[in-house]
C-alpha cells in the first residue's frame, strides 16, 4: 500500500515538471480570468467582462478560450493562479479585485502578457497606475471607486433626521480602508458622523454588528468582501432594531438593503471587456491606456425593505431609480 502511494507521489512530481506545457490552437485567443473572491459583485464583473469581449467579437468557445480561477480571498492562492496563467502563456490576464490585480501584475512584470484589472478601488494606491491614470507597467483596467458623495446625499434625502452612520469593514482590505477615509472626509458636509467598526474575520461580525447597531441611526456598506459575504446576518440584526442598512451596489439591495447609490458591476466588467478586446486585437497597448472609472452611480431601492422599516423613500428618488425591488430575495 505504502509503495503504491509512494509511486503515485513520484508520478505527481514528474507530472508537475511536464505539466503546463499546453499546445496552442491557431486563431484562438486564451485569456485567464483570476477572481479574488466569490461574491455577487465580482461575479457580475466577470460576466460583464465576457459580455464586453463578446461584443467586440471574442466569443467563448469559438475564438476565445477562457480559464477562470477563483482565489477564495487567499492572497497566496492568488499568486499561484497568476503564476499558473503566466506559465500557460495566456494572451491576456483579467484580474478581478485588488490583491488579484497586484499578484497578476507582479507575476507578469517580466513577460509580455498584458494584465487588465477591474474592481480595483484605487489603482494609484495599489501602484498599478500613476497619479495621471497612466499605467505603471503593461497593465490597465477599470476602477470601482465608490460614489461616496452620492451615497451620503441619498442617505440624507431618505433619513433627514439621521446623525450617525455606522460602517463595518475588515482591517485586511485596503480598498475598504481608503473608502472609510473618503466617508470620513465627506460626512461632515452632509451633517453626518461616521462610526466605524473594524473586524478581522467573518467570525467577528455578530459581535461587531450588535455593538455598532447600538450606536448608530443607520448603516452604510462598502464593497468589503468579508462584510458583504455576511450581509444577511447584518440585515437580520439591523431589522430587529429597525435600523436601515444602505448598500453599495445592486446585489445588496436585492437581498434587503434599503437603498444604494451604486455601480453596476456588470457594466464595469463590460467596459473592462471592451478595453481587453482592444488590447487583444493589437489596436492599443495596455501600457499606454489610462485606467477608466464609471462616473455615474445609479440609484437602487427595495420597497419591501422600506415597508418593513416603516420608511417612505421620497418619490423623486424612486422615479429616478435604475431598479426598484418589491421583494427581498433570499
Amino acid at each position: 500500500m505504502k509503495k503504491i502511494i509512494a509511486v503515485i507521489l513520484v508520478m505527481v512530481f514528474a507530472a508537475a515538471i511536464f505539466g503546463g506545457c499546453n499546445k496552442k490552437d491557431e486563431g484562438v485567443v486564451t485569456i485567464g480570468i483570476g477572481q479574488f473572491a466569490e461574491h455577487a459583485s465580482l461575479d457580475n464583473c466577470r460576466e460583464g467582462f465576457l459580455a464586453g469581449l463578446e461584443e467586440a467579437g471574442y466569443k467563448e468557445g469559438e475564438n476565445l478560450k477562457v480559464l477562470v480561477e477563483n482565489a477564495s480571498a487567499d492572497t497566496g492562492t492568488a499568486a499561484q493562479i497568476a503564476d499558473n496563467f503566466i506559465s500557460r502563456k495566456v494572451d491576456l490576464i483579467c484580474a478581478i479585485a485588488t490583491p488579484m490585480a497586484q499578484s497578476a501584475y507582479g507575476a507578469a512584470k517580466n513577460t509580455k502578457i498584458p494584465v487588465i484589472f477591474t474592481a480595483v478601488t484605487d489603482p494609484v494606491i495599489a501602484e498599478l497606475a500613476k497619479e495621471d491614470k497612466t499605467p505603471t507597467g503593461n497593465t490597465t483596467g477599470t476602477s470601482d471607486k465608490l460614489p461616496v458623495k452620492e451615497q451620503l446625499n441619498m442617505i440624507r434625502a431618505i433619513l433627514p433626521e439621521a446623525k450617525k452612520i455606522g460602517i463595518m469593514y475588515s482591517t485586511s482590505e485596503a480598498n475598504s480602508i481608503s473608502a472609510i477615509e473618503e466617508y470620513k472626509s465627506l460626512a461632515g458636509n452632509y451633517g453626518f458622523e461616521i462610526v466605524e467598526s473594524g473586524i478581522a474575520t467573518t467570525a467577528d461580525i455578530p459581535l461587531a454588528a450588535d455593538n455598532l447597531l447600538g450606536k448608530v441611526d443607520c448603516i452604510s456598506n462598502l464593497t468589503d468582501n468579508t462584510v458583504v459575504s455576511s450581509l444577511p446576518l447584518i440585515l437580520e440584526k439591523a431589522a430587529q432594531r429597525n435600523i436601515p442598512v444602505f448598500g453599495s451596489e445592486v446585489e445588496q439591495v436585492k437581498i434587503g438593503c434599503l437603498a444604494a447609490e451604486g455601480l453596476d458591476y456588470f457594466d464595469l466588467g463590460k467596459q473592462t471587456g471592451r478595453m481587453a478586446a482592444q488590447v487583444l486585437k493589437g489596436e492599443r497597448k495596455a501600457s499606454e491606456m489610462k485606467y477608466e472609472i464609471i462616473e455615474e452611480a445609479s440609484f437602487y431601492c427595495n420597497k419591501a425593505a422600506a415597508d418593513n422599516l416603516g420608511i417612505t423613500i421620497p418619490e423623486d428618488l424612486v422615479s429616478e431609480a435604475k431598479e426598484v425591488f418589491n421583494t427581498i430575495a433570499e
Binding site: K2, I5, L9, N70, S72, Q80, I81, N84
Partner: peptide
C-alpha cells in the same frame, strides 16, 4: 505538487484540500 494540481485543472478553491490530502499521504508513506 501544488503546481501540478493546478495544471491538472484542479480549481484553486480546492487547493487547500489537495494540500491536506498530500500532507496526509506523505505522513502515511
Amino acid at each position: 505538487c501544488v503546481a501540478a494540481a493546478i495544471s491538472f485543472g484542479m480549481e484553486a478553491r480546492d487547493l487547500k484540500l489537495i494540500t491536506s490530502i498530500l500532507f496526509l499521504l506523505i505522513l502515511v508513506v
